[in-house]
């Protein structure tokens, strides 16, 4: 097939856009690994800056990981059952609530943080604890979790599967763990990845809620941009990306996979009348 001029124009335009987005990222990543950014790569590669970042900021890294995992845990324990009960309920209020639960996404993180500070800011122990940030992160990410699970629950015949399991003697908890959870695994995984990604990368809300003792990676990053030399900030960014990229790729991959599954028909295969097949 002969490629037309317009094909090459589109290709170069796409590449240009990619370069526009990727070059600064790559630049800053290499900056974190060069001896002296102003002399360029010729000054040699080093892990010195990375080590220095770990010495200065490792607690922000651990806190970020702890927060992300704790947020995930809360979301799994609260979000999955919440989605299930919303999906089961036929009441109009359940539908209203489904819409409401998306609201925090529309409210800026700063506003959520401000509201939290106004309500709980006076409780000293909570205000200075990492749990305060956890509350913020859960408020922010829970809707994504619930939505992801709900989408799957709405696409399967939940009631029928449950009745099937109940007819075989399974009580509620058995049905929940044997049939419901496995059948909305896709939604749970994509919700979990989304939760981790959002929690790790969250800045607005966390910046408002943090104290000097509870700094997360993105907050520390902002600090370092303001006060450290460029190579250290860049090395710090590198660590951030290494943490975040797998999560983002995972989210994309799971999303693409579930879409593929929904597109492929799952109708019964045509009844074959082969001898050893049917009786």
């Amino acid at each position: 097939m002969k490629r037309t001029l317009s094909y090459y124009l589109q290709l170069s335009f796409t590449l240009l856009i990619c370069a526009f987005m990727l070059v600064p990222v790559l630049m800053s990543m290499t900056a974190g690994l060069t001896n002296n950014y102003f002399q360029g790569l010729s000054s040699g590669l080093t892990l010195r800056w990375v080590e220095e970042v770990m010495a200065l900021y490792s607690d922000t890294l651990w806190l970020t990981l702890k927060l992300a995992l704790a947020t995930l845990l809360v979301n799994l324990i609260a979000g999955v059952p919440a989605a299930y009960f919303l999906a089961c309920s036929t009441s109009r209020w359940a539908r209203v609530f489904e819409e409401l639960i998306l609201l925090p996404v529309a409210i800026p993180g700063l506003a959520i943080a401000l509201a939290l500070i106004i309500v709980y800011g006076g409780v000293q122990d909570l205000r200075t604890s990492w749990l305060f940030i956890l509350i913020g992160h859960v408020l922010y990410t829970l809707p994504f979790m619930v939505r992801a699970v709900l989408a799957v629950l709405h696409s399967i015949d939940l009631k029928l599967l449950e009745e099937g399991a109940a007819s075989l003697g399974a009580g509620f908890l058995r049905r929940f763990f044997d049939v419901i959870i496995p059948n909305c695994k896709g939604g749970i995984i994509s919700g979990a990845l989304m939760t981790l990604t959002l929690s790790v990368a969250e800045f607005n809300l966390t910046w408002m809620l943090h104290t000097p003792m509870t700094k997360t990676l993105p907050v520390g990053l902002a600090d370092s941009y303001a006060s450290m030399r460029l190579e250290i900030s860049s090395a710090y960014t590198l660590i951030f990306l290494v943490l975040l990229l797998p999560l983002m790729i995972g989210t994309q991959w799971v999303g693409a996979n579930t879409q593929k599954k929904q597109l492929s028909p799952s109708k019964p295969r045509h009844a074959s009348l082969g001898k050893n097949d049917e009786h």
């Binding site: 399967i156 599967l161 099937g164 049939v179 695994k185």
Partner: peptide, 11 residues
């Protein structure tokens, strides 16, 4: 019980 649409567990 055998349901009209079978209600087999896909998992």
């Amino acid at each position: 019980m055998v349901f009209q649409s079978y209600a087999l567990f896909p998992n």
